[in-house]
Nucleic acid binder design. Structure first.
Lengths: 230, 230
DNA sequence: ATAATAGTGTCTGTGAGACATTATGTA
DNA sequence: TACATAATGTCTCACAGACACTATTAT
């Protein structure tokens, strides 16, 4: 026993939807070594001296104290650990996928959203193995988006079908049939997850859009029994 | 920095299929405090002094050195961490779901397979929060079994449809239509995951059964595009 | 022959894919 | 008017559910 301990962190892969540019990743400028001054995933150390009641609490603390954003959805993705990912030695990271609403304000200039694609393509390199964590989190999002309504958590409470379509397509990385999405939204209406507000929104051109409201019933996403894009 | 460390383990939820009694859970009698002498999940401590290249390696080490069984399938489920799960203080467990073939030999008398139901119903209590870990691992198995061929990893390489049916039903916890399973096996044949050996197996009564061979193509389970039991 | 079990076939319903058609706004 | 976009409808196909029916063995 005695010193059989290891350095552990909780790291956050927080994504936001930008209607034109696609998904964006929240980064924070590191205040301390290692990699001081570089942009990296927000995260916190976990150890007995913090008041976290559990890992989800630690993730919420990271969101509150570091990222300073409110999560619309949060899910533990996985844990990685090895001797080389942190220069300080054997370390371990429990990382979370977090979706935030598109209209959030960033509270400080050590925080920024960058295009997700620039990170995934490694044009924007991240320290540690953070690029891989982002990759895994995105795979989780894409995987779940074909059989659940997870991308709706990227939208404001009131949304249009066109916005939902974009959320799904950016999450999955492929175009999908709008009629399939409409069918799914109809089934969500029947289950009380989505309702038609009756309002209309007028785009620059064309027929006005119905404005829907998304009301998640409990944690987790609405699950369908089939997959898109088979 | 300095002592910002935490106690971390990798724990294994290893399941085996017993044709009559259903799923069984592998337990080990703890050699050291805390809970010395009690039956618990096999696991190992992780820290910089062990030669693990990563968490999956640590899990394989736990299987090799503690459980002494060969995994047919292995998957990280999640990580739990809090101040109360271990009497030594704030601790963290990365736990894995492992499926092993039914013809396993146990190498020592500090190892045993117990009925999974007795653990899930808490008639067989486990130390730490191991009962909850088992619960979560089983939910993962059940969840994936409705849209993948995961339960086939509980079978020997050569198997019959009747055996596969039992593997699915025990994994999911409900009866399923054998004709649905046959359809899925046909599609796996087309994909090269299953082949008909041409052999027959004669049950005590009735028509002889076709003997199939399961040949996983890479890690992970074969995935279908629909769910059973909708 | 009878029982038991394996394997096949039939019918229905759901929902995704693809695409045509209609509806309703702006310029 | 033309054009753009939203919303609806139609047709096909794949596959799960349910269950009937046929096939092949032991007793």
């Amino acid at each position: 026993m005695s010193t059989a301990e290891v350095l552990a962190t909780v790291d956050i892969v927080a994504l936001r939807l930008n209607a034109e540019r696609g998904l964006e990743l929240l980064l924070i400028r590191r205040a301390k070594a290692p990699f001081e001054g570089q942009w990296a995933l927000p995260g916190v150390l976990i150890n007995g001296r913090c008041a976290d009641h559990g890992l989800d609490d630690a993730a919420l603390r990271a969101l509150r104290e570091k990222a300073r954003v409110k999560p619309a959805y949060m899910e533990q993705v996985a844990t990685v650990g090895n001797a080389v990912r942190d220069p300080r030695g054997w370390s371990l990271s429990v990382f979370y996928l977090v979706l935030v609403a598109p209209d959030i304000e960033l509270a400080a200039d050590d925080l920024d959203f960058v295009p997700l694609e620039s990170v995934r393509s490694e044009r924007f390199p991240l320290p540690f193995d953070h690029t891989q964590l982002v990759q895994q989190a995105c795979e989780r999002l894409a995987g779940k988006s074909v059989y659940s309504a997870l991308p709706l958590h990227l939208l404001p409470e009131r949304f249009t079908v066109a916005e939902a379509l974009k959320a799904f397509e950016w999450s999955i990385g492929e175009e999908i049939q709008h009629s399939s999405l409409r069918g799914r939204l109809e089934r969500m209406k029947a289950a009380g997850w989505v309702e038609d507000t009756g309002e209309r929104h007028q785009p620059p051109m064309g027929r006005p859009q119905h404005v829907l409201r998304f009301t998640p019933q409990g944690d987790g996403a609405f699950v369908f029994d089939r997959s898109l894009l088979v």
